[in-house]
Design a protein around this nucleic acid. Structure first.
Lengths: 346, 346
DNA sequence: GTTAGCACTCTGCGTACGTGAGTGCTAACA
DNA sequence: TGTTAGCACTCACGTACGCAGAGTGCTAAC
């Protein structure tokens, strides 16, 4: 549809605009790039490109600015070309990322925190990281650890090697042996179930088979539903709201306020991140976005998985004038890095 | 030092300025408040107040603005008068707070999250909440829960009824009975110790008394130090960065960036919050602040305790032109509320 | 198809100027 | 002696104007 020259000129405009945030004029192009074309010729081409919907003019006698359609074309062809020759991260950048990750990862949360931080630092934009909790884990066994005469800790171990616990009330004076008997029986009956299946009803059934104490049953129910709720919850990590303010499009306080408002609503952020399908990398440009507050932004998003399971999503959110190349490169790199770490979290 | 009339005028200026964010002129005062004084008289008084250091003029022929010294006087006398007649929260406000807290508190973190949210919403400023982890808990016993042939979960129960766990490596084929024996022995030897005391050396000693497996010892050491680290860590919750942008003094993007930068550095925030002594409510005005980035801000801060122990700190950070009365009232209320909740978290 | 030339448009910036709010000072008044 | 009216003065702010610079579209020539 576009001949090579138009393509080339469009690319120059996009990249120049991404760099300077100023409308690009024909003179500038002629001067900066040695195309062997005069400004007038370039002007004609630009006029065509505008007609075709790839460029926009803020006002007569200003340079031109890429439209969402232009970014779309740009990103698509870039993603294509990246399939052969993926990242373009400098050695320096990689080293930086590696060292940031090394900093402190004591637990999962730290990994996600670091990811959010790195993502925003490297791209100069806001980063969002969503961590899915594994709700697919299966019950392995449970155990009671005595605490006092009337209280104990219930531990649930799942087949993925994780455990969780909650406080429960026990009948006064229950012996340690009794507890072990109880937990053993219950474990047998519940083994292999998904955590989410262990609702009040099932638990009641299982429990009734071994005991009749109502108080303990009630507190067991509560503790388990707490654990299930906690484990099926998604967690959001944000990074680099500050970076936004470095972008010229966010010099307007109103716009910042708008975006910050969205980012502070955890629920909205989750919705946004969950909306991405699971097909690897996804770039959403401007009004392609379904969420009202970010229709003037672009988002690059990727899901990461572990053994085929989606474990979470990470995204970079910024002005449509975004350094797509860099963002995508960083994302690709982090993506691989993360999947490696997640496979073997030490 | 100040006669009643000066006091009165100063108070009017402060409150007017807090409300409007505009320098206050003598005419305005005469018009708005029925003092029975002409603008000229008020002018003379204001001139005196400026000489005394309570007022400042952005430029000749502008109204006057309260100095930090003025806020200090204002806040001090307000805090004094509040001792007799504490809160001035409307019924509405209280209901709002209560309902927000009811929303969802499944665990401690939710409580702090809610607190941060409420604090910022009610005061239109940034809120900071610091949660101390109890590092004073004492070891009660530990237990191993088998997981696979070579791994187990180590559970540590402390005397405050909490528990924590970590993954450890065990010698292949270790029986459940052996594990119980081991954990029982170790529990006996460690009982009553503070968690922080259980360093590598002590652990080595205790462990050597019961077994010789080096692999297990190493992974035990690691797991325990992880737990100690996690439990002695302070956690920060922020709220309402967005609110800042509503304040006229933060229409300047540079200033916002500055403050956001500080808030994003978790370590700095912790330092700031930890710097407050533990004497209940504390108001720091402008340059009284020791941290460079917030010298043009004010902070109202309160520590909350449980059984005499400091459990955390909450604070509201905003421009020196802050609604101190409201902020302090909200803080007082939350303070009580929190201590009640913490005493009986259900 | 490409280019030089030219008239035109729009923004941004500096200057000038009037207005309004506020001050300080002085002199008169109670 | 404290209070007030009056007045000249100052400063920020908004509006208007002119000018330079960047960019465009169009036309005519190469």
């Amino acid at each position: 549809m576009l001949n090579d020259r138009k393509r080339k000129i469009l690319q120059i405009i996009i990249e120049d605009y991404i760099e300077t945030a100023e409308p690009v004029g024909s003179r500038t192009i002629a001067r900066k790039h040695n195309l062997g074309l005069s400004p007038a010729t370039i002007r004609n081409e630009m006029s065509d490109l505008e007609l075709l919907g790839y460029l926009e003019q803020p006002h007569t006698s200003a340079g031109r600015v890429p439209s969402a359609q232009a970014y779309r074309l740009y990103v698509d062809s870039m993603v294509d070309s990246m399939k052969e020759e993926p990242g373009v991260l400098t050695e320096n950048d990689r080293a930086l990322i590696n060292s940031w990750y090394k900093e402190r990862i004591r637990n999962m949360d730290d990994i996600f925190k670091s990811t959010a931080k790195i993502l925003s630092r490297m791209t100069q934009n806001v980063s969002l990281v969503l961590a899915n909790k594994k709700s697919t884990a299966r019950f392995k066994y449970l155990k009671f650890l005595p605490l006092s005469d009337t209280q104990a800790i219930m531990c649930i171990v799942t087949d993925d090697g994780a455990m969780d616990n909650g406080l429960i009330d026990i009948p006064a004076g229950m012996s340690s042996a009794e507890m072990d008997y109880l937990s053993g029986k219950m474990s047998n009956l519940l083994e292999g179930r998904r955590l989410t299946e262990i609702t009040g009803d099932l638990l009641q059934e299982v429990y009734s088979a071994v005991s009749e104490d109502e108080v303990m049953l009630a507190s067991l129910k509560k503790a388990i539903s707490n654990i299930v709720a906690k484990n099926s919850e998604q967690k959001v990590f944000l990074g680099g709201a500050k970076q936004l303010l470095n972008q010229p499009e966010f010099q307007d306080v109103g716009r910042v306020k708008n975006l910050l408002g969205i980012l502070e609503e955890e629920k909205v952020v989750k919705d946004i991140l969950n909306a991405g399908d699971d097909s690897g990398l996804k770039v959403t440009i401007g009004s392609e976005n379904k969420f009202t507050g970010i229709k003037d932004c672009s988002m690059v998003q990727a899901t990461y998985r572990l053994n085929g399971q989606i474990v979470g999503t990470m995204a970079v959110l910024g002005p449509t004038r975004m350094e797509y190349r860099k963002v995508i490169a960083v994302m690709n790199y982090l993506h691989k890095y993360l999947e490696t770490i997640l496979k073997d979290p030490k």
